[in-house]
Design a protein around this nucleic acid. Structure first.
Lengths: 234, 234
DNA sequence: ACAGAGGATTTGTTCAACAATCCGCGCTGG
DNA sequence: CCAGCGCGGATTGTTGAACAAATCCTCTGT
C-alpha cells in the first residue's frame, strides 16, 4: 500500500529527498568511500541536480550520521570509528533485546523475520554475501518492528545504515555474515515455539559475537591504516 | 567536550543551523503553535534569511519530528497526537530505566542531575512553571547521559523536544510539573546512596504517573477541540 | 628551509526567475 | 438552487548566477 521505489520518475516526491536516497545507497553500496569529500559542484553535476537541492540532501544525510559536515570545508562521507561501532552495538542491545522479549508468534513482524531468513539462505546459495548481509539487517529491523514504535524504528533504521557503512570497510563479508544465518534461524524458531525469553538469550549472544567479529576485523583494518600512514611519513 | 549552546552568537556555525535552532525554540516556547503553517516567504522575511537557507533549516526540523512537510503544500508545526505521546513515553521507559540502573554516584551526569533538581526548586520559588519543566527535562536528559552513548543522547534529545512541544498545548503547567520535583529528588538520593535498582523503580513509577497526567490533560484538550469543531459544522 | 603573502578554489548565502502544484472563486449549465 | 468546471492567484519546487567569506595551495623572499 505504501512505499514508492527510489527509482526515477516518482511523482510528488521532492527531488531533494530522492537525491538523499540516491546518495544513501551510493554510500552503503560503497560507491562513495568513507572519508571521501563530496564536492558540491562535482556531485551536483554528476547527479544532475542544482547545488541548492544537493545541499538540502546533505542536511538529511549528515543528520542521519552518514556524512560529516565541517563548516567551510565541505561534507565528507562519515568514517566509522571503533567508538562508533561500540556505541552502535550498545544501542542495538538496548533496543533489540527488549523488543524481542515482547514478541508473540502471530505478529506481522515475525512473518517479516521468516522472510528475511529465507532470503538470506537464498543469497547464501548464490554466494552473494552482500545480499546475505542485507537480509540479515532486514531480520533485525523486523525485530525492532515488533515494538510498533515509529520513533524507535526510525532511529534503528538510521543506526543500521551507519553500521552498514562500517561493513563496507570490511573485506571478508562471508566470514562476517554467513555464520549468523543459523543464529537468526534459531532465534526465529524460539519465537515460533513461544519462548521469547530463550530468543532474547540467543539474540544477546548473537549481538556479542557479531560485535566481536566486526571489532576485530575493524581493528585489523585500522592497524593496516596506521602502518601505511607511518610508511608514508617515516 | 560535547554540548552546543543554543545561545546567540555562535561563531562559524552555518546560518541554516542557527535558523533551525531559532525555529526550534520558537516552537518549544509556543511562539509557533502546532498545526500552524510556516510560509517560506513570510518566515524568511521575518527571520531575515533567504528562502533557500530557510528550507535547509526546515529539513532539519522535519527530521527531528518538530515539523511536518507535505509536498507542494508546505511545512507545518507538528501537532502531537495521543499516539505520539504514548510512543514517546514508551521510548523514555526503554532508554531511561536501563540508563539509570547503570548509574554510580561519582559519575559526571549525577552532578548534572543534582544541578537540575536545584534549578527546578529555584524555579518553583519563582513560580516559573515553564522553567520548572525545562529543569525537569534537563534532569532526565542527564539520566540518559549516564549511558555515554552519543547516539542515544541525540535520539533522546530529539524525543524530548517533541514532548515539550506537547507540553506547550497543555494549560496547567503547575499541576503538570510541580509534583515531580520531589520524585526527581527521591531518585537522585537513591542513586547517591548507591541504590540504582531502587532508583529505577522510582523512575518507572515517575514515568507512569507523568504519562497518565499528560495523557489525561491531552484527552481533555482533544475533547474540547472536537466539540469546537462540531459546533462550527453542525 | 621556512614564513608568509596572495591568488585560486570552495563553501555559504542571497536573489531572481520559472515550472509545477494546490486552492479558492466565480461561472456555467442543468 | 446546486453541481461541476475551469481559471487565475498564491505557494512551493528547482534552477542558475552572483558575490562574500573562508580555506587551500603555491610561490616568493629571506
Amino acid at each position: 500500500m505504501e512505499e514508492q521505489g527510489q527509482a526515477s520518475g516518482d511523482r510528488a516526491a521532492p527531488l531533494s529527498e530522492q537525491t538523499a536516497a540516491r546518495l544513501r545507497t551510493m554510500v552503503i553500496e560503497g560507491e562513495l568511500v568513507p572519508g571521501q569529500r563530496l564536492s558540491e559542484v562535482r556531485l551536483s553535476g554528476d547527479l544532475g541536480v542544482s547545488r541548492n537541492t544537493l545541499r538540502e540532501a546533505f542536511r538529511l544525510l549528515t543528520r542521519e550520521g552518514l556524512a560529516r559536515h565541517e563548516p567551510h570545508r565541505g561534507v565528507f562521507v562519515a568514517v566509522p570509528s571503533m567508538a562508533a561501532i561500540l556505541d552502535i552495538y550498545r544501542v542495538r542491545r538496548l533496543i533489540e533485546v527488549p523488543a524481542l522479549t515482547k514478541a508473540f508468534p502471530r505478529h506481522r513482524a515475525v512473518a517479516a523475520m521468516r522472510k528475511a531468513v529465507a532470503e538470506a539462505e537464498a543469497a547464501r546459495e548464490r554466494r552473494d554475501w552482500r545480499a546475505v548481509g542485507s537480509a540479515n539487517m532486514r531480520f533485525h529491523a523486523a525485530v525492532v518492528t515488533l515494538t510498533e514504535s515509529p520513533r524507535l524504528i526510525a532511529f534503528y533504521t538510521q543506526v543500521a545504515a551507519e553500521l552498514r557503512l562500517a561493513f563496507g570497510l570490511l573485506s571478508d563479508l562471508e566470514q562476517l555474515h554467513e555464520p549468523f544465518i543459523a543464529e537468526n534461524t534459531a532465534i526465529l524458531s524460539a519465537i515460533e515455539r513461544g519462548d521469547p525469553e530463550g530468543a532474547a538469550v540467543l539474540l544477546t549472544a548473537y549481538l556479542e559475537r557479531s560485535e566481536r567479529t566486526v571489532l576485530s576485523a575493524f581493528a585489523r583494518i585500522e592497524d593496516e591504516d596506521d602502518r601505511r600512514r607511518r610508511a608514508l611519513v617515516p
